[in-house]
Nucleic acid binder design. Structure first.
Lengths: 241, 241
DNA sequence: CGATACGTTGACGGAAATCAACCCCGGTGG
DNA sequence: CCACCGGGGTTGATTTCCGTCAACGTATCG
């Protein structure tokens, strides 16, 4: 089973010993492919496995009574979006694949064993959930206090930075196969407004976005537009390509 | 040093052994009083202590370039708002007292010792940071997808529920000594609009709010108005009074 | 008793939502 | 082979929720 994405992720924070790498690499897991828009875990579920993104993209979301959806996070290969289900039994939100996505399902007891036997990995994972929380906070700030323009720019900055951290960029380009409706639900905007905002970013020559691929043409400009400061992602010595 | 609030909080999730209670109760800490609006920790700091709210209220916030402030969470007695600084060295946001507030400052190495020696307490604390994250997600949903009216109602529901969990309510009344400007910054609204929304809640006889004290007149009504479902707070068998 | 902070109210403006077309393109089935 | 279909993207017209500005009331406090 391919846990290399997870390894890359854990090591994007700090290095592991050979033994720790082995412990992670030998985790027993079941591979499962999910279709685009298919739920992986649903609000109210009590999962007995955690889900590691191997290939593709997932998101957490909730739907409010008015029928509107809020996406609370995007997840890229190496992420374990429902790691918290180890400690919190009932899901307060759903987890879905955004595109056809390969997940590795790891039983709770296996993860608990890994954590109990490897305190350093446990700390690393705890830290990872804390970075998750930091990302939530940034999204909250964006939705609450930034203009639509800054919000979209910030999201693209964050996405590219996270993708780079796990080695999924080529130069200033990476996959971003989300529909504008998905982006709208993530930013608390309407699709129409997202569309107009992306056009504005294109006209200002900050990005190119076609065929599910995002290219940052002007990193400094985009960063400034999005008021983006990567500190909260806590990456060790990341550089812009 | 009074860590009883922390004990109540930890036990609002699950019970501790006598030994664990002793370990928590005997934590060495320094008491410090902060004035209203005084910063406890600032964005960019690298704290070497964690701060436990003993009496009063604190919040996390950031200020965006336009000068607007987003408050990301309210913290009540028993909370350790910057526990994450154990694992994440540089603060990506500030922490401030909202009213005159008594904090217990506990050195990092003491907390690390507690965690290393008491795996169950460590899990409890991890879990606590995960509930924190769940609260962030709920706020995000509110700011992104709920009307101002529902947002305010939701916040009051959440606040009362959390206060009740640590024994700080009397019937349907609890302290809520925040200015409307603070509430506005928490909800991503303007003070003017918060004012009008609160009036609406009053007219509909859902709450009374005067002199820093909140009374819920109609819990069902308020809960419905706020689309509030307390699942995400993960409290064991909490009941409405 | 003035200063200051907080709450309240009204008038006005604007960013983004909503509504409603329309286009483009890749599938798919007759 | 092409008509049909549906999802995604784009555009314009209109509406609305909420922000901004500005004034005024009220309470607390030195």
């Amino acid at each position: 089973v391919d846990t290399s994405a997870l390894l890359r992720k854990l090591e994007s924070i700090a290095t592991l010993t050979a033994e720790e790498r082995r412990a992670v690499a030998s985790l027993p897991a079941t591979i499962k492919i999910f279709a685009a828009n298919e739920d992986i875990v649903r609000e109210g579920d009590r999962p007995s496995v955690v889900a590691l993104v191997v290939e593709g993209f997932a998101c957490r979301y909730v739907v409010v009574p008015s029928g509107k959806r809020q996406i609370m996070s995007f997840h890229i290969p190496g992420d374990i979006p429902d790691l918290h289900s180890l400690f919190i039994d009932v899901m307060d939100h759903s987890l879905a694949a955004l595109v056809p996505t390969k997940m590795a399902l790891i039983p709770h007891n296996v993860m608990c064993g890994l954590i109990d036997d490897n305190p350093r990995i446990a700390h690393r994972l705890w830290r990872d959930t804390l970075i998750d929380a930091a990302i939530f906070r940034q999204w909250m700030v964006g939705i609450g206090r930034r203009s639509a323009f800054a919000r979209v720019a910030h999201t693209f900055c964050e996405f590219v930075t996270r993708m780079r951290a796990v080695g999924l960029t080529e130069g200033n380009t990476c996959e971003l196969p989300f529909t504008q409706a998905m982006i709208a639900d993530a930013l608390g905007l309407s699709t129409v407004h997202v569309n107009r905002t992306i056009q504005e970013l294109r006209i200002k020559n900050l990005i190119r976005l076609t065929g599910g691929s995002l290219t940052v043409c002007d990193w400094d400009g985009l960063q400034q537009a999005g008021e983006f400061d990567p500190t909260y992602l806590q990456l060790k010595d990341m550089q812009v390509a």
